[in-house]
Design a protein around this nucleic acid. Structure first.
Lengths: 154, 154
DNA sequence: TTATAAAACTTTAAGCTTGAAATAATTTCT
DNA sequence: AGAAATTATTTCAAGCTTAAAGTTTTATAA
């Protein structure tokens, strides 16, 4: 997935783009993961879940989290389990539908996340420092448009 | 890692870019993983290792693979173990330095990879279909330049 | 030479990830 | 109402991933 095209030819430019895209995100991801571990003793998946919940004080269902984060249901179960055991998140059974539970950040979780998110934003700014703000906006637009075309189709 | 900025402000554009980048690569990666599984009963990590080896008939050391693929040593050990047990790869002890071993594709592995790689390239072309070849080249250039600036530093 | 350090790998423990199977609760259909 | 399908979630097995610790071999140096 990270190696270059095995030969030249048409369509190779998109393959090259994909490889670049993947290497870039893996490299940045690795760096962020390492810093999250070192500075805050946490992980990317935990950070992801907390970031999702931070925007929605009323909480999210497990399936909302799963959809939003683009990961499987079972995956979210495990991560939330660990966050609960650390007191950063709660699972509240609901009256209306007893299959579901609302997942929310605790006060601790919220404070904790705010601190981590601030550092995180700084890191991303640093790691993407050579991309101008203007260029960043353009790239973002390109990525946004190409994604929506095929994803979520059936 | 996949949620948006928690507030507005300066530096947010790079954060937005990072989130787009990550969502894009996760979405594409998930699609490719699924197809590799369904069509060829293999995985992305196996494909990555085989792609790396395919370019180098004389083989690679474990540490070369690890460096090239941006993953840890122990990780490569496990993946190569499985590829060996499937007969797609061999580990050849070396006379010169008995700590190391050369990892090579077997003939089976090589044939198998060629078929998978052809399909893979088609998929990537399809998934990135809305990006023109020209745009792909420009994006690739941007990604290349911003990466090299901080990665591999000390 | 012989201790010491360095290098190349492997092993291990903990956690992440998926897809599939299992549970439980709710909805839909007849 | 009762059966059947759907929905929300958890559990499970297998595999991926890392960092850290351990092993073996090679290089360095006193």
């Amino acid at each position: 997935m990270v190696a270059g095209p095995t030969s030249a030819g048409p369509g190779k430019d998109r393959l090259r783009l994909w490889i670049r895209l993947l290497r870039a995100s893996r490299t940045i991801e690795a760096e962020l993961r390492e810093r999250l571990k070192k500075e805050f003793d946490t992980t990317l998946p935990r950070f992801d879940v907390m970031a999702a919940l931070y925007r929605v004080p009323e909480g999210m269902l497990m399936s909302d989290l799963s959809r939003f984060l683009l990961v499987s249901n079972g995956n979210v179960t495990g991560i939330v389990d660990r966050l609960v055991s650390e007191g950063l998140v709660t699972r509240a059974r609901r009256n209306g539908d007893r299959r579901t539970s609302m997942v929310r950040l605790t006060e601790d979780g919220s404070k904790s996340f705010a601190a981590i998110a601030a550092a995180h934003e700084g890191w991303v700014g640093e790691l993407l420092g050579t991309v101008s703000e203007d260029e960043a906006r353009r790239l973002t637009g390109m990525l946004k448009s190409f994604r929506s075309n095929w994803e979520g189709r059936e």
